[in-house]
Design a protein around this nucleic acid. Sequence first.
DNA 1: GTCTATAAAGCGATAGAC
DNA 2: GTCTATCGCTTTATAGAC
Lengths: 190, 190
Amino acid sequence: MPREIAERRDAIPALGEVFREHGFSGSSLAEISQHTGLGKGSLYHFFPGGKTEMAEAVLDDVTNWFEENVFSTMLDSKHPEGVIRSMFEAVNCYFRSGERTCLVGAFALNDTRDRFGDRISKYFNAWTDALTSALKRTGFSEKNAAETAEDIIVSIQGALVLARSKQDAEVFIRTLKRLQRRIATEPHGV
Amino acid sequence: MPREIAERRDAIPALGEVFREHGFSGSSLAEISQHTGLGKGSLYHFFPGGKTEMAEAVLDDVTNWFEENVFSTMLDSKHPEGVIRSMFEAVNCYFRSGERTCLVGAFALNDTRDRFGDRISKYFNAWTDALTSALKRTGFSEKNAAETAEDIIVSIQGALVLARSKQDAEVFIRTLKRLQRRIATEPHGV
DNA sequence: GTCTATAAAGCGATAGAC
DNA sequence: GTCTATCGCTTTATAGAC
């Protein structure tokens, strides 16, 4: 049986939890060390760039997860309706029905964005492009697909903010349902 | 001519800027001292509770601003349509058309929420209640008013996240326009 | 690859002179 | 009310033994 943390990538999930809970500047190496079970020596061995490199690795991991599990199928599937439904399922699962926050969105709201701006842009641009592509293939006009994709991603992010603000995950669940209802009934043209 | 910072409340705007830019744990007393022009001695004279009391004062100030300039008229005005339009104008002005983030929302996304949970809840509950009240008086059914109010606040918060993530304030401007269009054309019943 | 020790700087907060 | 000096602690990061 392999050790729990034998290589760099094994530490990523725990790192993500720490950054999600405390933010970037609120995450100390002591907390990171405790939560990953790795001493400072090991942490700097795996991440010579220190905390910054750890956060970069987490952001890359988040984006890769979405690329592989969500975005890729949205860009080329023959069944865009099913793919969009799958996106909502994946989003609901990933964010634990509103109990979990979006690390990328949280990093964007203060000067942490200055450190990781390229990765933050990349995540949201990839999501926007993939969803726009899928919407177009369900019959949305070019312009309406782009606007609806933006609307959906905006609402998901806002629902995460409001759900955590009010300590009411139902806000998130209601929002996802509302969005799905809307794209099912809305006129798809301009 | 009075001095720029002669009493506690004069420091609040600068404090707000620092917390908005760096987050709570990322804001050091050195930075706060520099940006407010107050030495540590003065800061602790005005805010004996230290950084926590400073952030509480800023959150209270934000909520008071919204109470006085936005929420109060929404709760009792005879002209709810105009009041809702005014809300969007005030929101657009306050958040500088998407260039400024929401301090309350940003605090909510990590463990900073644990320190200020009551104030964060209060802000969003007051906003939700005021907007729901105004929507009901424009003819929305009880249930639809509550859901639409939640939708609008969710979208505003999400637009702030996405605008800053993509460094594109147009996301925010487009979202406000879209929301106003929607409440003007949507059926108001259940 | 993991540990301990340690450096050097920064942190929040306090004390006391003025 | 504002200042400087300082306390005690934590921070990130490195060095070197194992």
